[in-house]
């Protein structure tokens, strides 16, 4: 069965090439390519995707807002965020809003395809730098500051610590004597714990920033 992908990207050239790319892969098909998220619900309903590639910087409804709406109305859909910039606040907000993964546009096309696949199967693909940033922000949360403290298990904390030190998944796997997949699962769990807080301050802040 093919993975149905919907694309939200305001740059015409990129949008069309992504569409072509997805369509060129055997197990994927692009059901819809949209320039903005203004008619989000209608677009999603017509495309009926499994995975959504969402650009963060779009005119009108922001990418992060769109993630919130999709997670609300269509919770089964996985979302892969895309941007040129490594903007910590927006990254964190997107994850909190419910995005499964976050990719920089400089990623090689092959890796992009892999990411889409991973997202669909419940993974949490992230550019290493983005991953670290998110995890750093998770670590920086203090128990007294917000009531949205994220409670991590001991193992998750271990992995988090290693990730923050910019160890690759491979390195972490060998240090913790587990497989890379295990590491990835742990990481996904960490992110899932973030998803719970879709209405978090971080999200509101990011949206506010975009509007301003």
């Amino acid at each position: 069965m093919e993975i149905k992908v919907a694309i939200f990207e305001d740059n015409k050239l990129l949008r069309e090439s992504l569409q072509q790319l997805v369509n060129s892969v055997e197990d994927m098909v692009c059901n819809g390519a949209f320039a903005d998220a203004n008619k989000l619900e209608r677009n999603i309903q017509s495309a009926n995707p499994d995975v959504v590639m969402m650009d963060i910087d779009m005119p009108g409804v922001s990418g992060i807002e769109a993630v919130q709406i999709i997670k609300e109305k269509f919770p089964h859909i996985h979302i892969l965020m895309q941007t040129v910039f490594e903007e910590n606040d927006k990254i964190f907000a997107a994850i909190c809003a419910g995005a499964s993964g976050y990719m920089l546009k400089k990623t090689a096309p092959q890796k992009m395809i892999e990411a889409i696949r991973e997202t669909h199967f419940g993974g949490a693909p992230m550019t290493a730098s983005v991953a670290i940033k998110v995890l750093q922000m998770v670590r920086q949360q203090s128990p007294t500051s917000t009531h949205e403290f994220i409670d991590l298990s001991e193992r998750e904390n271990e992995i988090l610590a290693l990730l923050v030190k910019a160890k690759s998944y491979k390195a972490i796997a060998s240090t913790c004597f587990v497989s890379i997949d295990t590491v990835k699962t742990h990481v996904r769990h960490i992110y899932e714990k973030l998803h719970v807080h879709s209405k978090s301050e971080a999200v509101a802040k990011a949206i506010h920033q975009k509007l301003v």
Partner: peptide
């Protein structure tokens, strides 16, 4: 960045 990305994709295709 977006345009570069598209070039990258197109050359891959």
């Amino acid at each position: 960045g977006s345009t570069l990305s598209s070039i990258s994709i197109m050359s891959e295709l």
